[in-house]
Structures are given as C-alpha cells and as structure tokens.
Amino acid sequence: MGKNFSIVCLLIFCASKNIDAQVTAQVVAPTKLPLYLVGTIILRNQSESIATIKARRQKNKRTTFREKSELLKYGKVTKIGRQDVTFLNYLTKKFEKIPLGQFDGSKKLTAKKMDKGESSFHLKREKIDSLLENLHKEVYNAGSAPVYGRQGEIVGYRITFVKKNSIWSRLGIRKDDVVKRVNGIAIDSPLRVLELLRQLKDSSLIELELQRKSHLRKIEYLIR
C-alpha cells in the first residue's frame, strides 16, 4: 500500500509540474473575452491569493477567485500574479491571461463613489512603496488604540487622531474609525498588522473594512 501511495503522489506531482511546464512553454496572450481584472491580493501562501474580476458587460458585478477555481463559465484560474491572472480557456483549450485594468498614472490619489457605505481610491505603486519605506515617520501622523470585545479579545483598532493633509487623511481614514479587517483578515494583534503590511508590497487591491459611528464601511484601494 505504501508503494502504491508513493506512486500516486509521484503521478500527482508530475501532473502539476506538467501544467506549469505547459504554461511556461506556451506564449500566454491576453484574452479577448470580456473580462476585467480589478486587482489581486498576493498572500504568502500562493493558493490563498485572491483576484477580483468582473465581466465588462456586467457593470457592477465583481467576483473573487483563487487559483484552481472556476472562472465564471470561461475556464479555470491557474495562476494569480500582481499584474495579471492566467487561466485555461475552456473554449480555445489554451492558457490566456487577464491583464490588470488600465490606470492613468497622471491621476493622483482620487476617490470614486461606489455603493452606499463604500468608496474606492486609485493609488500609484510608488505611493505605497514610499509609505512602507517611511512608515516610521507616517506613524506619527495618526494614532490608534485597540478595541476589546466582551471576552477581552481585540476586535479592531480605533483611530484616535489623524493629522490634516497626512497620507492617512487622504486615504479616507477619519478620527474614531474602528479598523476591523484588511483584505478580509481580522486585525486582532500588532503582529497581524505587521504581517499585512508586508503583504501590501505584492497586492494591487487592498480592501479595508471599518466601523464609522454605527455603520460598517468598506474602502477599496486600487494600486497601479
């Protein structure tokens, strides 16, 4: 049984390598399907990385996908990268990629109204890189304190102050906001915050969930 199990494992390993080899050997062209890549969230465990994609004909409908998941009716996602998503097109039987949506780099930090309780910002990649490099300076432009739940657990961080015209202010953060989640991950410890900051370097989409007064809000940052 042990020998048979080893053979099965070897076959699975070879099959997965074969798929990677096919993608590498083939020149992956941009898809002609009506798909738009809003952004990607790259996590340390690649299988948990997320891509947000919408069909151009469906104006406001967005769906998130992980590797090996079905891409609507069009195919199967095989790889999620910072700038594109590769998938196997069921119709053409070829690997194709969905490039990241076009972004006008001349635009600075801008906000776009979305559904009620949501807002969207466009950010240049250099702005995020600069923020992470100068975090030791930017940290003095806003303050926060943990918010505890009934069992004594941390359920978020309350913003105690935000300096006017600071990066935090321009990112839509306000005094007394309670930041609860970043990219769907609960902010329940200082170590979690540091882990998320490291992930921001490889993400093109950041989703911030917070409580403002008695309302839950979502802020989306598209990084190009």
Rank of each mutant, 00 (worst) to 15 (best):
E48R: 08
W168T: 00
I12H: 07
D129Y: 15
K112M: 09
I206E: 00
S120T: 05
Y140C: 00
R66A: 11
S69N: 09
V77L: 02
N183F: 03
G149V: 05
S16N: 10
K163R: 15
K68D: 09
R217K: 15
G156L: 04
N165R: 10
L197N: 02
S144N: 03
G156K: 01
N45C: 04
L91V: 10
G39L: 03
S47N: 08
Y36F: 13
K137T: 06
G156N: 04
E118V: 08
P30N: 13
K127G: 04
D84A: 11
Y140N: 02
K93R: 12
I159S: 03
K113T: 13
K94A: 10
C14E: 06
I185V: 15
Y221I: 05
R62M: 14
S204Y: 08
K107C: 08
P34T: 11
Y74T: 11
A25D: 14
L37M: 09
L216R: 13
L71I: 04
L196C: 06
M1A: 15
V193I: 13
K108M: 06
A29I: 09
L109D: 02
R150D: 14
G105V: 11
H215W: 10
K73W: 01
I159N: 03
L11R: 06
D188C: 07
G117N: 09
I206K: 00
R217N: 11
K218C: 05
I80N: 01
L222M: 10
L205A: 01
S69V: 02
T110F: 09
F5E: 14
I42G: 04
C9F: 14
E118A: 11
T63K: 03
K54S: 14
K175R: 14
E133Q: 12
G156D: 03
K116I: 13
N134C: 09
K113L: 11
L10H: 10
N60S: 14
N183G: 06
Q199Y: 04
H122C: 04
H136K: 09
K112I: 12
F103P: 00
V8G: 07
G172F: 04
G105K: 09
K124Q: 14
L208A: 02
L91F: 08
P190V: 06
K175P: 02
V77I: 15
G101H: 13
Y36S: 11
M1T: 15
N141Q: 15
F161H: 12
H136Y: 07
T52F: 07
L191K: 10
A111C: 05
